[in-house]
Design a protein around this nucleic acid. Structure first.
Lengths: 153, 153
DNA sequence: ACGGAGTGCTAGCAATAGTTAGCGCAGGTC
DNA sequence: GACCTGCGCTAACTATTGCTAGCACTCCGT
């Protein structure tokens, strides 16, 4: 996974610009930023805001996301945090449901840890701890029967 | 599809903070920003940088991504694909676990649909269909007994 | 009553982002 | 040669972000 080194946003922008074979002034104009500022950014003298990065991305015809990643504003979708972040950001499920999903996910992760990581070969060996299963049952039971069963007992 | 309106980052932060039942000063401290500045942000008087948003997100224990979306820095991933795509791309859980998670998520979504969207009030009414629960049990059982039970029959 | 702790906010300031005006250089044309 | 166009950059400036010091208010305990 030879990702470009995060942090050298200026270098990255210059590379992309040179790849596109356009001058600094052309990119500045297309991006709608001043060319001296773009020059400063490329040389690492300034740290542009996300909005400026967005504009530069448009000028370069690349995704703003790529520039955000280079600038360290967002993480390059590391799978571990991505699922959790996605679940957290989801507004279509309730907070309780989010927590349940996250718990399940983390439980899966925990069980896979002794396997040493991403083993798709172990598809058939997907353990689900029974305490988690009972927690899920509690969610279902509370909705199914509507009685306030205490889970502590 | 009642998503929060993008752009009212200050309102969003205040709402999240009030949901978390912490004071402005507490959040400011947890986020590592000055409390007057946080106050200004909440009231829309200032436009925080992505870094500040990142810090605030940490203080709120939410994803920075959610704040970036609110602030308009990134586009709101379409929720259907975000969680599901993230789960699919995850390499730390097995394919079977991925499918289970996706099924759970979709089931949550489906149950929430008549509720009209993100109702955190309905936390206690998070229905989990019994067929899904049995599917989860099947995952657990297949791991517990280690026999190659055919699931087709 | 007072004092203390907590709350959110105001005013002023320092630091930084982003712009404008202009420079020197290179290449081309007459 | 002079002039023009295009290149990237410097210096000074404006606008904005983010902070510090301090205020007024509320609530509670003595």
């Amino acid at each position: 996974m030879a990702l470009p080194k995060v942090g050298s946003i200026g270098e990255y922008i210059r590379e992309q610009r040179q790849q596109a074979k356009i001058s600094l002034r052309q990119l500045a104009e297309q991006a709608g930023v001043s060319n001296p500022y773009l020059s400063q950014i490329e040389r690492g003298l300034r740290k542009p805001s996300a909005e400026i990065l967005n504009q530069i991305a448009k000028g370069l015809h690349i995704s703003a996301q790529a520039l955000y990643v280079q600038a360290g504003l967002i993480e390059d979708r590391e799978p571990p945090s991505d699922v959790i972040a996605a679940i957290r950001a989801d507004t279509f499920i309730t907070g309780r449901q989010r927590q349940v999903l996250i718990d399940i996910y983390e439980s899966f992760r925990k069980e896979n840890r002794p396997a040493g990581g991403p083993d798709d070969q172990a598809d058939d060996e997907s353990p689900l701890p029974e305490e988690l299963l009972s927690a899920i049952e509690a969610v279902t039971s509370s909705n199914g029967t509507r009685h306030q069963s205490t889970q502590e007992g």
